[in-house]
C-alpha cells in the first residue's frame, strides 16, 4: 500500500487546532458505578464476613455449636440482625454483579446470554427476598416447639 492511498482513506481533521474533546457518553455511567461498587462493597464485606466466620466457626465450640438455639441467640439481638441483613444485601449485589461480568465475558450467543442473566436475576430476587423476610419475621421462641431445642431465655 502506498502512502497516498492511506492518506486518502483517512477522514479529514475538521479543526486541527482544537483541543481534544472527550466523546460524550450516551449510555450512562452504569459500568463505572458498578466498578466503584465492587470495590466499596468488597472492603465492607471483608469485615462483615470475617467476623461472621469467626463467630460461627472459631469462637466457642465452632461449627459443632450451630443449631436453632444458636441462631435464635444471635438474632434475638438487633445488632446481629442488621449485621446479617447488610451482609446479605452487599454479598448478593457484589456476587450478582461479578457473575454478570463473567456471563458477559464467556456467553457469546445473545440468546444464551439473555437466559443466563434471567436465571441470575431471578436467583438474586428470590434469595434476597427470602433472606430478608427470614431475618425480619424470625421468632426465637416459636410456640409449640420442644423447649430443649430453643434458647434458654424462652422458658424464663
Amino acid at each position: 500500500m502506498t502512502t497516498t492511498t492511506q492518506a486518502a482513506a483517512r477522514l479529514p481533521i475538521e479543526n486541527p487546532g482544537q483541543a481534544y474533546q472527550r466523546r460524550k457518553t450516551t449510555r450512562g455511567n452504569f459500568e463505572l458505578y458498578g466498578w466503584v461498587f465492587m470495590r466499596a462493597s468488597g472492603v465492607v464485606l471483608l469485615v462483615l464476613i470475617f467476623a461472621h466466620l469467626f463467630v460461627n466457626l472459631v469462637a466457642g465450640e465452632g461449627i459443632s455449636a450451630i443449631d436453632f438455639g444458636f441462631v435464635a441467640g444471635k438474632w434475638a439481638s438487633p445488632f446481629w440482625q442488621v449485621w446479617d441483613l447488610v451482609m446479605l444485601w452487599l454479598a448478593m449485589l457484589h456476587g450478582t454483579n461479578g457473575v454478570r461480568t463473567i456471563i458477559n465475558d464467556y456467553a457469546e450467543r445473545d440468546g444464551l446470554r439473555m437466559w443466563l442473566k434471567i436465571a441470575l436475576y431471578t436467583a438474586f430476587v428470590v434469595v434476597v427476598t427470602l433472606g430478608t423476610l427470614v431475618i425480619f419475621t424470625f421468632d426465637p421462641c416459636p410456640p409449640g416447639a420442644a423447649a430443649d431445642l430453643l434458647p434458654s431465655f424462652c422458658t424464663t
Binding site: 436453632f68 438455639g69 441462631v71 435464635a72 446479605l88 434469595v127 427470602l130 433472606g131 423476610l133 427470614v134 419475621t137 424470625f138 416459636p142 416447639a145 420442644a146 431445642l149 430453643l150
Partner: peptide
C-alpha cells in the same frame, strides 16, 4: 440462605 431459612419452618 436457603438452608438458613429453615429456621422459619421449625427448629
Amino acid at each position: 440462605v436457603l438452608d438458613t431459612s429453615l429456621v422459619r419452618v421449625s427448629p
